[in-house]
């Protein structure tokens, strides 16, 4: 690629998802992060019990993300070829896992008005 700028990345991402969907996704990600931060602020820190429960969502989140990517791109786990492939796979898994944990924690925080004692 000639010049890989943020502008180019945004333009390419808009093309991948469609402009509307892309910005909706960005908004959704921001909203979840905001919600997550808001629950942290409201509870005055991490509610360890809820966080523990939320962490259970890591593996399914990671697996779903990797599975989705493989399915979307007609590829299989056996196509993993070099170190960068493992890193990409790991990155995708972590992304999916962390995303799921944040969702679970933030949504759990919405459902529960006050942090457990």
């Amino acid at each position: 690629m000639e010049d890989l700028t943020v502008e180019t990345l945004i333009a390419v991402s808009e093309e991948i998802f469609g402009r509307l969907t892309f910005w909706l996704l960005v908004l959704l990600a921001l909203a979840i992060t905001g919600l997550f931060l808001w629950t942290l602020w409201r509870d005055g820190g991490v509610s360890s019990r809820r966080f523990l429960l939320a962490q259970l969502w890591f593996p399914p989140g990671a697996i779903a993300m990797v599975g989705f990517m493989l399915w979307m791109t007609s590829s299989r786990l056996t196509d993993i070829g070099g170190p960068i492939d493992w890193i990409a796979l790991l990155g995708l898994g972590i992304w999916g896992g962390v995303g799921a944990v944040m969702w679970a924690y933030a949504l759990g925080g919405l459902a529960r008005r006050r942090p457990p004692a």
């Binding site: 990517m69 791109t73 590829s75 070829g81 070099g82 960068i84 492939d85 990409a88």
Partner: peptide, 8 residues
């Protein structure tokens, strides 16, 4: 190098 990321 034959890679999955290049396929992606």
């Amino acid at each position: 190098e034959e890679l999955w990321v290049s396929w992606l």
